[in-house]
């Protein structure tokens, strides 16, 4: 009886809890921001409003990943473990497409909304200097970032065809993602490398933010597009390879 009542309320409670969580993480970030900038005017060569814009992008991308990418990928790992992936594979549609849109977690929109507010505020403080070039750069880098993160997740999830207990690895992503709240350029060389090429936090957060505030150079933009294209292709191939392996095993 208790369970039934709880379930009935679960959705609404989930929303409230998510709102609280988003609010808290925003508050944490803002107070941290204030503490840091009470002691300095620049961080690396980033000004306070640049960092604030970066924070906005951090929340927006985090929200989008939590909304669109992560739920489906967690679901995929679970389906592989439980053997329920077979239902998806029997559908007359591209399996990668189906598993990628299997689930959304709508409450994560709160992060997106809060992030947009922070970003808007930061850009306003900077004097609304976002021109045509910056808008295009932001759109392109955000798309590439999304594609890279998606491919990264797809590769991890595909690994679950071989290693059943891999869901914990998503925790690593969360831990690393925290690092993206500050410019990747601040980190020592080896960590910069990890945060760029092993866990692609730099492409997901720093590069789009740089694009928006006009700090992006052509070289980085080119690299971004290149890596995105490569990741999409590699993850696609790896997925198909994993799928062949999976079907072979269960047959």
């Amino acid at each position: 009886m208790r369970i039934g009542i709880l379930n009935e309320l679960a959705y609404r409670m989930n929303f409230l809890v998510q709102l609280l969580q988003s609010g808290m993480s925003l508050l944490t970030a803002l107070v941290g921001f204030l503490v840091v900038f009470s002691h300095t005017e620049t961080l690396g060569d980033w000004r306070p409003n640049d960092i604030l814009a970066l924070l906005g992008v951090y929340l927006i991308v985090g929200g989008l990943v939590g909304l669109l990418i992560r739920p489906s990928m967690s679901r995929l790992m679970e389906d592989v473990r439980e053997g329920t992936l077979d239902y998806t594979l029997t559908k007359p549609e591209d399996a990668q497409f189906l598993v990628s849109i299997a689930q959304v977690r709508i409450w994560k929109l709160t992060d997106f909304v809060l992030g947009s507010i922070v970003l808007g505020y930061a850009l306003f403080n900077r004097g609304l200097d976002v021109g045509f070039d910056e808008t295009i750069a932001f759109a392109v880098t955000l798309t590439c970032g999304g594609a890279i993160v998606y491919s990264f997740f797809l590769i991890l999830s595909t690994l679950s065809f071989w290693f059943i207990r891999i869901d914990n690895i998503l925790v690593i992503f969360d831990a690393m993602y925290q690092a993206g709240r500050w410019p990747i350029g601040l980190y020592p060389y080896w960590l910069k490398f990890v945060l760029t090429f092993i866990v692609p936090i730099a492409f997901a957060i720093t590069v789009p933010a740089e694009g928006l505030i006009g700090r992006l150079d052509a070289q980085t933009l080119g690299l971004d597009i290149g890596v995105a294209t490569l990741m999409i292709a590699v993850s696609r191939l790896f997925w198909r390879y994993g799928l062949r392996n999976y079907s072979g095993a269960s047959a």
Binding site: V36, T40, M176, L191
Partner: peptide, 24 residues
């Protein structure tokens, strides 16, 4: 894996404060 989480956090703040100290 959980351990990585606990190592990353101090590194992040260490990096940030190092940058602050340098700028000052």
């Amino acid at each position: 894996i959980w351990m990585i989480w606990r190592v990353i956090e101090p590194i992040i703040y260490l990096v940030v404060w190092t940058a602050v100290a340098k700028s000052r």
